[in-house]
Amino acid sequence: MNKQILITAIILTLFAVIGGGLVSLTEQNTSEQIKTNDKLALQKTLNTILPATQYDNDLTSSVIRIAANKLLGTKQQSSVYIARKNNQASAFIFNAVAPDGYNGNIHLLIGIFSSGEIAGVRVVKHKETPGLGDAIEARRSDWILGFNTHSLNSLSNKQWKVKRDGGHFDQFTGATITPRAIVKATHNCLLYFKQHQPELLQSAGTAKIKE
């Protein structure tokens, strides 16, 4: 009887070893490709905000980590990508969260030129209603492009709102909450940039040394 149990255990172990072996073999052979893919995907998203002509460094590896901040809507450290041209920091791309979407958090990438102008805003992840709130995606409408070139100087604090609240930006028919959340998050990100610009430029300098 004991022998039977032993044989059964050995068979089971054998299968576990073979299965595990095959999985780790595949893992080894695909991990490089997967890393490249993830990097390419990130590069592609960053490029939609900041055209490749605007920088000449490796954007995906020129990253600094910043502490959680209420203005960015972040609860943990987040990454900031620093674009450089001719060794001058030309733009910063922030990960920001709009916490007050219709269906929870809307994750954004917000690019800001060193001058304080918006380079571009893109929605990375959201749970807004398909067909109503999802017009914030660049592939569904060009509403999100309306932020380009705006800054704290081009619009006053009162104008950084949707039209229904007396501001500058359009809302969609049937969905005001979603655009309102994004306008607010973008405005807050600009405020964050204004407050922290000196530190950011300084860390941009150190990030360059690390490269």
Binding site: A16, G19, V23, T26
Partner: peptide
């Protein structure tokens, strides 16, 4: 279960690598 889990994990990795 072991066989199916291994196969699915391998397919998942291959898809992640080739059709991201």
């Amino acid at each position: 279960v072991l066989i199916i889990a291994s196969i699915v994990t391998i397919i998942e990795m291959l898809m992640h690598a080739w059709v991201p």
